[in-house]
Amino acid sequence: MAKHRIYTTSFTSVYPHYVAKAERKGRSKAEVDQIIAWLTGYDDAALDALLATKIDIETFFAQAPAPNPSRNLVQGVVCGVRVENIQEPTMREIRILDKLIDELARGKAMNKILRTG
Protein backbone atom coordinates (compact mmCIF):
# COMPACT_ATOMS: atom_id res chain seq x y z
CA MET A 1 0.00 0.00 0.00
CA ALA A 2 1.39 3.40 -0.94
CA LYS A 3 1.89 5.96 1.79
CA HIS A 4 -0.45 8.89 1.92
CA ARG A 5 1.29 11.91 0.48
CA ILE A 6 0.54 13.89 3.62
CA TYR A 7 2.80 11.59 5.67
CA THR A 8 5.88 12.96 3.90
CA THR A 9 4.77 16.58 4.26
CA SER A 10 6.86 18.41 6.82
CA PHE A 11 5.10 19.24 10.05
CA THR A 12 6.77 22.65 9.80
CA SER A 13 4.75 23.39 6.65
CA VAL A 14 1.43 22.41 8.28
CA TYR A 15 1.89 24.03 11.69
CA PRO A 16 1.46 27.65 10.48
CA HIS A 17 -1.92 26.69 9.02
CA TYR A 18 -3.08 25.44 12.43
CA VAL A 19 -1.92 28.69 14.05
CA ALA A 20 -3.49 30.86 11.34
CA LYS A 21 -6.82 29.04 11.64
CA ALA A 22 -6.84 29.58 15.40
CA GLU A 23 -5.77 33.22 15.18
CA ARG A 24 -8.43 34.03 12.55
CA LYS A 25 -10.98 33.02 15.15
CA GLY A 26 -9.41 35.00 17.99
CA ARG A 27 -7.48 32.12 19.54
CA SER A 28 -3.71 32.00 20.08
CA LYS A 29 -0.56 30.19 19.01
CA ALA A 30 -0.07 29.31 22.70
CA GLU A 31 -3.39 27.45 22.66
CA VAL A 32 -2.38 25.55 19.51
CA ASP A 33 0.89 24.61 21.22
CA GLN A 34 -1.03 23.52 24.34
CA ILE A 35 -3.19 21.23 22.21
CA ILE A 36 -0.13 19.74 20.50
CA ALA A 37 1.56 19.23 23.88
CA TRP A 38 -1.55 17.54 25.27
CA LEU A 39 -1.87 15.27 22.24
CA THR A 40 1.78 14.32 21.76
CA GLY A 41 3.77 15.16 24.89
CA TYR A 42 6.09 17.57 23.06
CA ASP A 43 6.87 20.49 25.37
CA ASP A 44 7.47 24.03 24.03
CA ALA A 45 11.24 23.53 23.67
CA ALA A 46 10.86 20.21 21.85
CA LEU A 47 8.16 21.64 19.57
CA ASP A 48 10.33 24.67 18.75
CA ALA A 49 13.27 22.36 17.97
CA LEU A 50 11.11 20.19 15.69
CA LEU A 51 9.73 23.23 13.89
CA ALA A 52 13.32 24.19 13.07
CA THR A 53 13.70 20.90 11.18
CA LYS A 54 11.89 19.36 8.22
CA ILE A 55 10.44 16.50 10.28
CA ASP A 56 7.66 14.81 8.35
CA ILE A 57 4.22 14.34 9.85
CA GLU A 58 4.56 10.58 10.16
CA THR A 59 7.81 10.90 12.13
CA PHE A 60 6.36 13.75 14.21
CA PHE A 61 3.63 11.46 15.50
CA ALA A 62 5.74 8.28 15.60
CA GLN A 63 8.34 9.97 17.83
CA ALA A 64 5.86 11.73 20.09
CA PRO A 65 7.25 11.37 23.59
CA ALA A 66 3.95 10.86 25.43
CA PRO A 67 0.86 10.33 23.27
CA ASN A 68 -2.10 11.15 25.48
CA PRO A 69 -4.29 8.10 26.13
CA SER A 70 -7.33 10.42 26.27
CA ARG A 71 -6.85 11.24 22.58
CA ASN A 72 -9.09 8.24 21.92
CA LEU A 73 -11.95 10.28 23.40
CA VAL A 74 -11.80 12.62 20.40
CA GLN A 75 -14.75 11.91 18.15
CA GLY A 76 -16.49 13.64 15.31
CA VAL A 77 -16.18 14.35 11.62
CA VAL A 78 -13.12 15.82 9.92
CA CYS A 79 -12.93 16.04 6.13
CA GLY A 80 -16.11 13.98 5.90
CA VAL A 81 -14.71 11.06 7.89
CA ARG A 82 -15.48 10.10 11.48
CA VAL A 83 -12.23 10.30 13.46
CA GLU A 84 -13.12 7.34 15.65
CA ASN A 85 -13.56 5.11 12.57
CA ILE A 86 -10.11 5.76 11.08
CA GLN A 87 -8.09 2.55 11.34
CA GLU A 88 -4.70 3.68 10.02
CA PRO A 89 -2.79 4.98 13.07
CA THR A 90 -0.94 7.93 11.52
CA MET A 91 -3.98 9.21 9.66
CA ARG A 92 -6.00 8.89 12.87
CA GLU A 93 -3.43 11.03 14.75
CA ILE A 94 -3.48 13.65 11.98
CA ARG A 95 -7.27 13.83 12.02
CA ILE A 96 -7.40 13.98 15.82
CA LEU A 97 -5.14 17.03 15.71
CA ASP A 98 -7.26 18.52 12.93
CA LYS A 99 -10.40 17.97 15.02
CA LEU A 100 -8.86 19.57 18.11
CA ILE A 101 -7.78 22.63 16.12
CA ASP A 102 -11.29 22.83 14.61
CA GLU A 103 -12.76 22.80 18.11
CA LEU A 104 -10.38 25.57 19.16
CA ALA A 105 -11.31 27.68 16.15
CA ARG A 106 -15.01 27.17 16.91
CA GLY A 107 -14.55 28.71 20.34
CA LYS A 108 -14.80 25.58 22.45
CA ALA A 109 -13.37 25.92 25.97
CA MET A 110 -9.84 24.53 26.37
CA ASN A 111 -10.85 22.12 29.17
CA LYS A 112 -13.44 20.61 26.80
CA ILE A 113 -10.96 20.41 23.91
CA LEU A 114 -8.45 18.64 26.16
CA ARG A 115 -11.16 16.33 27.50
CA THR A 116 -10.49 17.37 31.12
CA GLY A 117 -13.96 18.39 32.14
Rank of each mutant, 00 (worst) to 15 (best):
Ala66Lys: 12
Ile94Val: 14
Gln63Phe: 09
Val32His: 00
Glu93Val: 06
Arg115Ile: 13
Gly26Asn: 02
Thr9Arg: 11
Ala49Gln: 10
Pro69Glu: 11
Phe60Met: 08
Leu47Thr: 06
Arg71Cys: 07
Gly117Thr: 13
Gly80Asn: 11
Arg71Leu: 09
Val19Tyr: 00
Glu103Ile: 04
Ile113Tyr: 01
Lys29Gln: 12
Val32Thr: 03
Lys99Gln: 13
Ile57Leu: 11
Ala52Pro: 02
Asp43Gln: 04
Ser13Gln: 13
Ile55Ala: 09
Ser10Arg: 03
Leu104Lys: 02
Ile101Gly: 01
Arg92Ile: 07
Val77Gly: 08
Ser13Val: 10
Phe61His: 06
Arg106Pro: 00
Ala62Thr: 13
Thr53Glu: 08
Val78Arg: 10
Lys99Arg: 15
Ile96Val: 15
Met110Asn: 05
Gly41Cys: 07
Val32Ser: 01
Glu23Asn: 03
Arg27Ala: 03
Phe61Ile: 07
Lys99Asn: 07
His4Ala: 10
Leu50Pro: 00
Ala20Cys: 00
Ile55Gln: 09
Glu103Asp: 14
Arg92Gln: 14
Thr9Glu: 08
Glu93His: 14
Gln87Asn: 13
Tyr42Thr: 08
Val77Ala: 12
Gly117Asp: 15
Gln34Trp: 02
Gln34Cys: 11
Tyr18Asn: 04
Glu58Lys: 12
Thr59Glu: 09
Pro16Glu: 04
Gly41Trp: 01
Val74Met: 08
Ala64Leu: 05
Met91Ile: 14
Asp33Asn: 13
Asp98Ser: 12
Thr90Glu: 07
Glu23Phe: 01
Arg71Thr: 13
Phe61Ala: 06
Gly107Asp: 04
Ala45Val: 13
Lys29Phe: 01
Glu58Asp: 12
Pro69Gln: 07
Ser10His: 03
